[in-house]
Amino acid sequence: MSANVNTALPLEYQTEQNRMNILGFWIFLGAEIILFGTLFAVFSVLNARYAGGPTPKDLFEIKDVMVETILLLTSSFTCGLAIYEMRRGNRNGLLLWFIITLLLGAGFVFMEVTEFIHYVHEGATMQTSAFLSSFFVLLGTHGLHVSMGIGWATMVIIQIFKRGLTPVTARKTFIIGLYWHFLDVVWIFIFTFVYLARMVA
């Protein structure tokens, strides 16, 4: 709680409260790993229960999935660059890369929503089978996280505009960066175990 500032460290690590927030967020990410792990467990158990409904081979389009993957991977990269610029104290660089990240994220969400609408038109809804229930909920949870991330990052961008780079805004930016990379990590596993594995099986 003390406002002791250690200027030798990067902005986001300068106060004790900041360090606590960052550690706390890492712990939260630990909980998120388990949350997504559980969703993966559900998907792994139910993924062959089609109940007469469509199968992954009927539905998945590898091209669209690859585009989504690359969008998200690139956004994770640009997000890393944003933090990199922040540590150099370059506010404009930070904002530029940050906004590019969000645009890429928005592109991803758009692709995913289109994909879902497409499935629903093909008669594959959440209510069709256990496989689709677990598919939509796993992907939907990830998509919701990305959307929340975009909203949250927008708040932070406004604050950077208003207040500039301070230990507080830097910490917020850093934390959202962690969150964004984490969502990319989750996507890697979705890409691997939902799309690739189910298309091969």
Partner: peptide, 16 residues
């Protein structure tokens, strides 16, 4: 923390 979270996730998935 991350290793532990990953361990629990693996237990959950493999165990289930």
């Amino acid at each position: 923390n991350v290793a532990y979270g990953f361990f629990i996730a693996v237990v959950t998935v493999a165990g289930s």
